[in-house]
């Protein structure tokens, strides 16, 4: 028996909105530790890694490890039926081929449930090695989304370069070039507005705009985003999901041909 209850169903909806650009379908691995998802996009350029801790749920029970393969378009349809303030309860029997989502309104005056068919997905899991990153940048997630959106107009790639002076985002293309430089700013009153850089050594890497833009669909999940970079290693773009876990995106840097 698997049962997970989340008072803020909108959090799960935001997670879904954040990954549905990249993934058509995905396996949710449920265990007593919580719900995990790891999947590459269809081009195998980026990797999505979601971790929702069991103690972040309002109720969590998982008697037996369970892998639920879901079509994310269908899952999106189910969550479209939920109200913004609804509580969601996910339930599945052991070895079941369906999962049930029950939505309850805050006042308990409306209860709806939707049963969705599960899929058998043959998904490979990749082992992600621990990396000592050359630089870790934390910045407002809205600012990151804005910069990626702005610079995407100029080219297909963005160079992210980080030195002790700050972080620079650059793009170039047919119409010209664009550069955005951010200095470190620590706002003790408003931590979420700070830009902080933890630098071991300067690094500059090139990434495809298309994927960076997809990652920023996770912006509503978190005030801050963490970018971890190292030469010849995928970029990690991490959004903390308050009290529940995190959503990470990995993107392979572009390399000289």
């Amino acid at each position: 028996m698997f049962e997970a209850r989340l008072v803020n169903s909108s959090t799960f909806r935001k997670v879904l909105d954040a990954i549905k650009d990249l993934l058509n379908e995905a396996s949710f691995d449920c265990s007593e530790n919580g719900i995990q998802l790891q999947a590459m996009d269809s081009s195998h350029v980026s990797l999505v890694s979601l971790n929702l801790k069991s103690d972040g749920f309002d109720k969590f029970r998982c008697d037996r490890n369970l892998t639920m393969g879901m079509n994310l378009t269908s899952l999106g349809k189910v969550f479209k039926c939920s109200g913004a303030d609804d509580t969601v309860t996910m339930k599945a029997q052991d070895y079941a081929d369906t999962v049930t989502f029950m939505f309850e309104s805050k006042k308990q005056d409306k209860i709806s449930d939707y049963e969705m068919k599960l899929m058998n997905l043959d998904q490979e899991h990749l082992g992600i090695p621990d990396t000592e990153f050359s630089c870790i940048i934390k910045m407002p997630s809205i600012e990151f989304a804005r910069i990626i959106r702005d610079l995407s107009q100029f080219g297909e790639s963005i160079v992210i370069s980080c030195t002790k002076e700050g972080v620079k985002f650059s793009a170039q293309g047919d119409i010209g070039t664009g550069n955005v430089k951010l200095a470190q700013t620590h706002n003790f009153d408003k931590e979420e507005e700070s830009v902080t850089i933890d630098l071991q050594e300067p690094v500059a890497l090139t990434f495809a705009c298309q994927y960076l833009n997809s990652f920023t669909k996770a912006t509503p999940l978190s005030n801050q985003v963490k970018l971890s970079m190292c030469e010849n290693v995928p970029l990690v773009v991490e959004y903390q999901i308050p009290e529940l876990g995190h959503l990470r995106f990995y993107l392979a840097p572009k390399i000289e041909e």
């Binding site: 490979e124 990749l126 392979a252 572009k254």
Partner: peptide
């Protein structure tokens, strides 16, 4: 520039 696969960086488990 070329875009490598993410699978080149991580091992199959």
């Amino acid at each position: 520039m070329a875009q490598p696969s993410i699978a080149c960086y991580f091992n199959n488990r």
